[in-house]
Simulated assay, not measured.
Amino acid sequence: MSERAVLHVRFLGLSDRRGEGHHELVRLLEDLTPVVRSLPPDAALADVRGALRYFEADAERLAGLVRVRALARHGVDCAVGVAGNPLLARLALVGRDGPGVWVVPEDPEGIAEFLAELPVDALPGVGAATARSLAGYGLGAVGRLAAAPPATLQRVLGAGQARRLRALARGEDPTPVVPGAPEPTLAVEHRFGHDELDAAWRHRALLSLADELGYRLRGAGQTARALTLTVRYADHATTTRRRELAEPTAHTPALLALADTLHNALGLQRARVRAVALRAEGLAAADRATRQLSLDPADERRRRAEQAADRARRRFGAGAVGPAGRAGRPGRAA
C-alpha cells in the first residue's frame, strides 16, 4: 500500500490564454515541493511527500490549496488527480473535463475497484490497434486485463508487452517524479480565433502543426515514434487520441498523414473546436533511427525539398518558407 502523495495537475483554459502562464503555474507547485515535473503544454506532476508534514495537511488538502492559489494568482482553475504513484494520479483524471480534485484509494481493493471499468486505452502506451485487439478477446476494460491469465496476455500481446500492461492494469508504477527531467515529447498547439466548425480549417491547422513539429524535430536531430492529437472544444472538454508511427520519423508528410488519420477517426461533425494540439512522443536521436528505404523518387524529392526549406528557415526565419495551405504560426489564432 502506497501513501497518497502524488498530484497530477491539469491547468484548465490555458488554450484561451495563448500559451501564457504554464511556467508560472508550475512554479506555484514548486512553492509546495521541489519535486515537480513539468508536462507541457498544460499539466505537471508533483510529489508532495515531503510537504505533508510541513503543511500539516494530507495530499487532498494540498490539491485544494493548489486550486485556490492558481485561481487567486492566475485566474486558472485545475483538475487534480491524487494518488500513490504518477500512473494512478494521471488515471484519476480520465474522463474529467472540469475542475476538481479526484482521489484514488490507497488500499489494493480500492485501487482495483477504481481501475476496473476504465477503458484499456486509458493506460499509457495502449493505442487504438492494441485496444481493438484486446477488446476482441473481451479485455476492453482495465479490470479484465488485470484479471486475465498471463498466458492469455502473452498470446495476444507478446511476453514483454503483456508483463508491462498487466502491471499497469494493477496500478503498479515504480517511476518516481523526477524534477527537471527532460521530456521525451515535443508539443505544439493551434488556437482558432473563433469556435471552428469547418473540418477544412482544422486540416490547415494540423498542417501547420505537423510542419512546425517536423521542422523542430529535424533541427534537434530527433525523430518521433508516436503522435498524440488533442482537440479542445468550446466548453473546455478535450478528446485525446494517440497512435504509433509506422517508423520513427521527423518527416512532415508522415506526421501530417497520421495527424489527419487521428482527426478523421474522431468523426467530428458540428463540434465547436477551440484548439488542436499535436505532441510528438518517444523522441530519439535521428542517427539511431532505422528508416525503410523508399523506391519512390517523389518521396526522395520531398525529403530533399524539406531539407532545402529547413536551410532557408534557419537563414531567413521560421516563417520564410512552408507548405501551402497552412493556417499560420502554431499557437496563434487563425
Rank of each mutant, 00 (worst) to 15 (best):
L65P: 08
G64D: 12
A122K: 01
L217Q: 06
L88I: 05
V188G: 00
Y137Q: 09
H74D: 01
G110F: 10
R90K: 13
A224D: 07
L32Q: 09
G219E: 10
Q269I: 13
A43V: 10
A259L: 04
T238Y: 05
A112T: 10
V178H: 14
L256Y: 04
A141I: 13
P149F: 07
F11I: 02
G138Y: 07
A275K: 00
R304V: 15
P182G: 09
P34H: 07
P323E: 14
S294C: 08
E106A: 15
A305N: 11
R132A: 15
G328S: 03
L227A: 01
A57V: 01
P99L: 08
T290L: 14
A151P: 12
H194E: 15
H263D: 01
H8S: 09
A131R: 07
L39N: 05
P34L: 04
G100S: 05
L186D: 01
Y54S: 13
V142M: 01
L278K: 00
Q292Y: 11
G317M: 08
P330L: 03
A151Y: 12
R96Q: 09
H23N: 12
C78H: 05
D47K: 05
A116R: 15
A112N: 11
R164T: 07
R326Y: 03
A199D: 12
L65S: 09
G50M: 11
R313P: 03
P124S: 05
R311M: 09
A167K: 08
A312K: 08
G140Y: 08
R10G: 02
V68L: 13
V231D: 03
L91W: 01
A309L: 06
G322I: 07
R218H: 14
R17E: 11
A333F: 10
A289I: 00
A226Y: 02
D47S: 12
L266G: 05
I111Q: 07
L255S: 03
L213R: 00
F55K: 09
L262W: 00
R270M: 13
R69G: 08
A131L: 05
L45A: 08
G325Y: 04
G160E: 15
D107S: 11
